[in-house]
Design a protein around this nucleic acid. Structure first.
Lengths: 342, 342
DNA sequence: GGTTGAGATGACAACGCTGTCATTACAGGT
DNA sequence: ACCTGTAATGACAGCGTTGTCATCTCAACC
């Protein structure tokens, strides 16, 4: 009686290349060649093998394949959040860019936590991805080191305000904030209020805030009042905070919001409270979400192109699978959208 | 001179267990035991090895690990879309359920295309996931077969109107539609209009429509007018279609929308057009999105719990890693939310 | 002093596939 | 008949881990 040594028992009757090969009376190599569609194979052989593949319901094991070929075909994607609609939009761009290639994205979420990001990056790298697309350019030292040492392409997306490890795709949030401030100053606004995110997590929101401040400072201005909160940005929060700041400082000209969601909430408050927009109070958002355009009065905001950012990030990797000599910056820009609220 | 046969050249100086083992003067086995934190290891050895891990920047290769242990620790997730906010919400629930386990989700998007779903599922299964969480219960025959034969747990989420392969987590969309219709009939509405999705892709929207029809039929009623469109549901579309249906059939009592986004668009149209809601026209959505609650007047709708659906789907898998004898149905329910629009 | 057993560690095949090289078959040219 | 070249296929090591079993050490016990 054969002594059943080692782990053969585990194989829960999975079908392997060898099974197909045996049934089709060819070698493993031939089946492998056929399955990945490269190398010379006679048509007759191919048909015979494919028939057996159908019969057995064979699905190649990409884990084994990746190990053998030293190519996982995986693209790691690291984003801070799924609840902020901008990230799913970027993911769509990434998926669009990846469509038709044989590469697969693996998405990880950090909840805006740099320590979690570190853990997530470590786990991702363990899967030997061909590239890592990661939101933002601020990471822990360890994360930075891991990404550098991984040797794979690291495309940082969303912002280009910091020097990238390898490449960055996005826009300058500081510049966007400054442009918004200039625009509003030019339209005659003088008493500015800020409603938005005030935590330490969303660094891009902070950079926009910084840009706004710089822009106002150019005109010798600054925020008269601010209402900030933590956690995720929602319409409800925008509404509540607008209500609060209006009660506290009734004579503001205009409110700038850290995001469109917040600004929409602000508009809802004004509607409820009978505040005329923009006559009594101007409202200005950030992002250019679909929602803002469909409002009874289109939201004035800064448009960014999230889909394009994702797509361009992928394209950069696909066109240059190895690291460039010089860090590369791809500016997808932004655009002041003159809606009807400011 | 050594004849450099085979693929050793490829190894772009990756650090492996053996490298760590050599430097720490222990065997590969010991390093492996330490890295995955199981098995007996002396503290001194552990420290020595971990020091070398740090020095070399060793990151275990999960591809090799998965192959050797026949466990990928991957959970495949298949969703139709990222642009519809409900799916990112479900993903959040899934991530929450997976947090703290050593499992990783791999997300694939089908664009509401059953053929693409088939391809996507094939690719997913190639990664030997421990489970597949897939939106909806309607698949191609081949997809169905692949999932069945995979032997892994298959949790279908969102809907429980069809008999599941293995388990289903969600709500009955037919029942939800019917409940909504009854509710509105009871509130005195008689001349119903439907605004929403009319394509063949989003089957759940169709089931809700069917439920609405059944509910109306009970009262001897039916839709007086309908305005349907294809593609993704957006606020802008809801606005445009509401405008259209109101112009075409001015004497409707109430509009039911296939989703909250659409309904919000409808409300925006009414605001712009001076139609009083709900006095002149009632509006009723579906989903209970955050957006609807923050409106100047809260949207009347059917609340579903997307986060919970995702979380429960994961929990079902985690608590029962192997298939149940009987297909299992987990009803997360729904709730009529009496807002201020109908 | 010898036995026992738990604690540590090591050796090595196996996981399922792919890259490389070797081999075979055979048409075409001389 | 012999060589050449190309198409088609096969053999097999190697990818970097992990599971299993074997081995070794040494304190505790009789």
């Amino acid at each position: 009686m054969a002594k059943q040594r080692y782990r053969l028992a585990d194989r829960k009757s999975k079908v392997t290349v060898s099974d197909v090969a045996r049934l089709a009376e060819v070698s493993d190599s031939t089946v492998s060649r056929i399955m990945r569609g490269q190398g010379l194979v006679a048509d007759a052989t191919r048909e015979k093998v494919m028939a057996m593949v159908k019969v057995l319901g064979y699905v190649p094991n990409r884990i084994a394949g990746s190990l053998a070929s030293l190519d996982s075909r995986l693209v790691g994607v690291v984003i801070p959040s799924l609840s902020n609609i901008v990230f799913p939009e970027i993911l769509q761009g990434i998926n669009a860019g990846l469509a038709g290639t044989n590469r697969q994205s693996v998405i990880s979420v950090t909840d805006y936590d740099l320590d979690k990001e570190e853990e997530v990056v470590r786990n991702l790298l363990a899967w030997q991805p061909a590239a890592v697309l990661i939101a933002g350019s601020v990471h822990t030292f360890a994360t930075q080191k891991m990404l550098e040492n991984s040797g794979v392409r690291v495309i940082e997306f969303m912002e280009i305000d910091h020097p990238p490890i390898d490449a960055a795709v996005g826009l300058s949030h500081v510049a966007a904030g400054k442009a918004a401030a200039r625009h509003l100053v030019q339209r005659g606004y003088r008493r500015f209020g800020y409603v938005g995110y005030g935590g330490t997590q969303d660094l891009r929101a902070r950079m926009r805030y910084q840009g706004l401040c710089e822009g106002l400072a150019e005109a010798g201005l600054g925020f008269v009042a601010e209402s900030v909160s933590d956690g995720q940005t929602t319409v409800a929060k925008g509404k509540a905070q607008t209500s609060e700041i209006c009660a506290r400082v009734p004579d503001l000209d205009v409110l700038t919001f850290s995001s469109d969601d917040m600004a929409v909430g602000g508009l809802f408050h004004c509607m409820s409270a009978g505040i005329r927009v923009p006559e009594d109070l101007g409202l200005f958002g950030f992002n250019g979400l679909e929602l803002g355009r469909a409002l009874p009065q289109p939201l004035s905001t800064v448009r960014t192109n999230r889909f394009e950012i994702g797509k361009r990030a992928v394209e950069e990797f696909l066109s240059h699978p190895t690291r460039p000599d010089q860090p590369k910056i791809i500016d997808t820009g932004f655009e002041i959208f003159e809606g009807a609220t400011a």
